[in-house]
């Protein structure tokens, strides 16, 4: 699988993926909601399958000495790798924002949206949202990889954005998820932990769903 992941990185990474992944640092822009940092990079991911179709990625990979389902597994891992890279970049940029930007003092709910500091909870919600996106994207795409390009991308993108928005709202209305006292920190880290688990679980389920459909596809 290491070789396949290497193949994905070397042959399937395009400029848009690199550029939009780097937009995870948009978290540094003052007064922008931190969730923006997780939404912009999705645009790069959406280029993955159309570019793959143009490059005959599936045809090439299917000739390699691997199992057919490994094609889906490698793509799921590559998606996960990009998403973790987004998280790490957003994490580093979030630390900069947290420590060096002035915190909103006595901010009301509206100010929270506009000028809040990133929280661990947000990263947890982002991970869970990415996981759900992976289920939708992999499951839908590999059922018919030669025709289904726009549908899986749009649906998974909308689902992920809705979940991220919902996460942002939950954090806004549940103070414990954004505060840094003992209870708040525990709640935040708990949300992050749950996000990590859900991301791994959903991405695995996405692979399983995609692989199941892909087995029946004639290449």
């Amino acid at each position: 699988m290491k070789k396949l992941l290497y193949k994905e990185i070397v042959l399937c990474t395009n400029v848009q993926i690199i550029l939009f992944t780097a937009f995870a640092t948009f978290i540094l822009i003052p007064s922008w909601p931190p969730a923006i940092a997780f939404i912009y990079p999705l645009s790069g991911l959406m280029t993955l399958f159309p570019t793959g179709l143009a490059n005959k990625d599936i045809e090439y990979t299917s000739l390699l000495p691997i199992k057919k389902t490994d094609i889906v597994k490698a793509k799921a891992l590559y998606l996960g790798l990009i998403e973790i890279t987004v998280l790490l970049l957003a994490g580093i940029a979030g630390l900069v924002r947290f420590f060096f930007y002035p915190a909103p003092v006595e901010a009301d709910q509206l100010a929270y949206f506009m000028a809040t500091r990133p929280s661990f909870s947000l990263y947890g919600f982002a991970l869970a949202s990415f996981g759900v996106m992976n289920i939708v994207l992999l499951g839908m795409y590999y059922r018919d990889p030669y025709k289904r390009l726009t549908g899986p991308s749009i649906v998974s993108l909308i689902v992920c954005m809705l979940l991220l928005t919902a996460g942002t709202l939950v954090i806004a209305f549940v103070p414990a998820l954004r505060e840094y006292d003992a209870i708040g920190l525990a709640a935040q880290l708990g949300t992050l932990g749950a996000g990590i688990l859900l991301f791994a679980l959903f991405t695995f389920l996405g692979y399983r769903s995609g692989a199941k459909g892909f087995t029946n596809i004639d290449l």
Binding site: E59, L64, P65
Partner: peptide, 12 residues
């Protein structure tokens, strides 16, 4: 499959 494809090459 994986072992077989080490020993068999396909070119379309």
């Amino acid at each position: 499959e994986a072992d077989y494809k080490q020993e068999a090459a396909m070119l379309i």
